[in-house]
Design a protein around this nucleic acid. Structure first.
Lengths: 122, 122
DNA sequence: AGAATACTTAACCATAAGGTTAAATATACT
DNA sequence: AGTATATTTAACCTTATGGTTAAGTATTCT
């Protein structure tokens, strides 16, 4: 398991705490695209500079890279921070994914399983 | 798949964007404890009211519940928001967990990739 | 060259976040 | 009743965040 820096996690979680940025991430997960394309769904709600700022936040978090292609900037989603978030949250999976089922088992049977019996859904 | 509200995700990601709060979550994952116990590791760095504020942030995010027990408040980690984060990030797993392998495949075999992989490192 | 396109940067504003200290509240101990 | 313990609330400060509009930069089109 790779140990990631707290600052990196700070920036990644902070970046993902905004719905516009999550929408951008969702869009980018379907493929690279230009800033204008990314901005288009939000243009009635916020301005282009606002989108540009969001992109910089994503960039600082390492979630986005841009490659200049003529006058267009091709935006690309970088997966590493998502992998880190996944790793972080999965480190609690044992905790949360067994919690309810294990509790139910504890209450029904009186056995004390070291490894809480089974999960219903992962 | 359960669809969770954007506001809930906003609050959860924002709550997790702070290292003190992540440390609190980590501590709570090992078992319920009092506010003082939670605060103890941070007392040289920040004040008790600061910790109290962090707890309220976690509470608003649904990550924490408190149960009064005499003059002590027993803090308990609520797993649901973590489950939601997991669900959110797992929806990108296909994207990020295959990325590098796919790239390797593209480079080794000469099958024609839709997206010619020409950059090495992101 | 000049105009359009695709952005970013600058300057600014309002609100939120994270910290502080001091005071308040509630329960427990003697 | 009075003191200690466990915590929150209040008032305040500083910096960060998310938005704005206006201006700047770089590339492409005519």
């Amino acid at each position: 398991m790779v140990k990631y820096s707290p600052e990196s996690m700070n920036r990644t979680f902070a970046a993902l705490a905004d719905p516009t940025r999550r929408a951008i991430v969702a869009r980018l997960a379907q493929g690279d695209c230009s800033v204008n394309d990314l901005a288009e769904p939000f243009m009635d709600a916020i301005s282009l500079p606002a989108v540009s700022k969001h992109l910089r936040v994503l960039e600082r978090a390492g979630l986005l890279s841009q490659e200049q292609d003529g006058r267009v900037r091709r935006c690309h989603l970088e997966p590493e921070p998502l992998r880190q978030v996944s790793g972080w949250v999965e480190s609690y999976q044992r905790f949360w994914s067994h919690q309810l089922d294990a509790l139910a088992d504890y209450l029904e049977n009186d056995t004390k399983p070291k490894t809480p019996p089974k999960k219903r859904k992962a």
